[in-house]
Design a binder for these strands. Sequence first.
DNA 1: AGTGGTCGCTAAACTGATTTAGCAGAGCAT
DNA 2: ATGCTCTGCTAAATCAGTTTAGCGACCACT
Lengths: 341, 341
Amino acid sequence: MGRNRATLADVARRAGLSKTAASMVLNGREGTRLSADAHQRVFAAAEELGYRPNVAARSLRTRKTATIAFVSDIVATTRFAGDLIRGALDAARERDHVLLITETQGDATFEQYAIEAMLDRQVDGVIYAAMATRRLTVPPAILGGPVVLLNATSADDLPCVLPDDDRAGRSVAAALLEHGHRDGIALIGRNRLKEGDPEVSLAAEARLRGIRQALGEAGVTLLAESFCTEWLPEHGYAAMRGLLNRSPRPSAVICMNDRLAFGAYQALGEAGLTVPDDISVISFDDDPIAAWLRPSLATTALPHEQMGRRAVELLLDGAAAGPVLVPMPLRRRRSLAPPAG
Amino acid sequence: MGRNRATLADVARRAGLSKTAASMVLNGREGTRLSADAHQRVFAAAEELGYRPNVAARSLRTRKTATIAFVSDIVATTRFAGDLIRGALDAARERDHVLLITETQGDATFEQYAIEAMLDRQVDGVIYAAMATRRLTVPPAILGGPVVLLNATSADDLPCVLPDDDRAGRSVAAALLEHGHRDGIALIGRNRLKEGDPEVSLAAEARLRGIRQALGEAGVTLLAESFCTEWLPEHGYAAMRGLLNRSPRPSAVICMNDRLAFGAYQALGEAGLTVPDDISVISFDDDPIAAWLRPSLATTALPHEQMGRRAVELLLDGAAAGPVLVPMPLRRRRSLAPPAG
DNA sequence: AGTGGTCGCTAAACTGATTTAGCAGAGCAT
DNA sequence: ATGCTCTGCTAAATCAGTTTAGCGACCACT
């Protein structure tokens, strides 16, 4: 790979100058007293030879690699990981940086290995990302340099980037109130584990808090709350069936994520009920299926791309410790209508 | 990042030996005549100091970085990209390598930039990946070293890894034949652009060919073929509605991907028809929604993780030019049944 | 004439590893 | 005593850059 690349020495020779001079010109060093003519010759030589500096050689001296480590627990299982990475890649490119990506799969051995591999390559900083918003323990090895937590917090006082689930909860509730729903609002996806253990999830508790607060301010309480062991379609399906067996029937349902909502749609379809005429549905995440459902599902979008971007910016611009909350925009879609009758 | 790391010189000093000796011991060089005692002392010193070699320094001399460039057009928009990357990460880790990932977004400027950034960092090889299986043109800059194409082919005679869409087509057709379907099989998702232009898609033509061949061998022809401008749920929905307006009604439908099948399910549900009792459905990709649908959708899985893994293996083990076809396993699920009546 | 300052540039050290060439001492044969 | 080989190790070069320290020429001023 990259054999026969021109070196700085080649450029200098062609320009009839020393390596020192060539280096200074190409780095645009201020305060050197090299003549305009010398500048010209170096630029011309570099251009003609297609010179590109060897980053390894440079970093040996400068201890900067323009490379960022992106360490996450899981990149594959959710569609969102790609957005996190894409945002980070975009911001990195804008700042002439590059991303070294690894996945730990939640395995301590893999994590240790990954972190050593990154540090051996002298990365300038680490983005430590979690795929589910949660609190985690940062491996001490990476605390020697800049670190930003992405979609996570920790006990250490580090800069971190999180989605604003609390406000998303409020906007979801507000959207239903706007449409005139009050006493018929049910919730699908309560989960004691997610709500109680910040190492499992921060989103569940924050979303619930936001929903309750907005409803509370309007003097409304939830008609029913269904508990689910997981936030998957089958659980949303079961929960919705359960709600339909009760009386009165809810006029609207909030699902804790889109996959639950997908399951709820299935149960409603089987029961012969129509969204939104019989029941409104709103949810969280903006998974691609939300737009594909018929009718399309109103939801609050996880701003993953934006978050990935912010993480890189915080890392490179030197961030103050503490959380940055990224807003989750409300996607108004066809699953909302005023309560029937 | 990584300040105060022990250097080889530190290890050598502590072991009372030269850098040369320390280097040889730590690299397990054969044929050196260093004493057992010297070995002991070097290992002990390295251990005590927590020594880890500086990859930049080493690569300056050896021209090996144990780093692979993973350049793709798009990482975010499909859920599958994650799997491709995960497979590549796993295989890379097993071989003590690390992945530098970039995304070109199909933009020539970004691509140029990304490739230069990788080459500047002296990567040992490049995996050039496409998110839709297709033929593409490889930027000449990366041909100076090892390259493997992932989910793509090119005119250059390079090793490449592709899903076996042709065989997937045959197994999809065979699954329907097994269930006794013959003259009632319809196809959703024909698309002249995808079938005709290998730079857009290789999958469409291969899947179609496989289907036709397996049906042909059984003396069966397709009852109907619906064309779609895109392979999205709304197009599957429209196509399915179209098919239901015709007579006779198909007994089974093959969809060119799961998103089309998702749309077909929606149309079937609205028409009051039941899968698989009224109509069987089978498809391609094994998108997560395939398992979430009710009833679960039979499909052939894109083996993306496996493909990512193979690409790294080919790159590092030195591959012969030409394609490696990775099988697409058939997922037998509840959307298949014998024809009604 | 001697001194000092500025201008334009370079030699050499340095980063942390690998690798080549070769040295000192021991043991043995002649 | 000499030459030879073998053992166990090291000095120094090398990779491709950055950075420090400083050199020679020229000019101005006293």
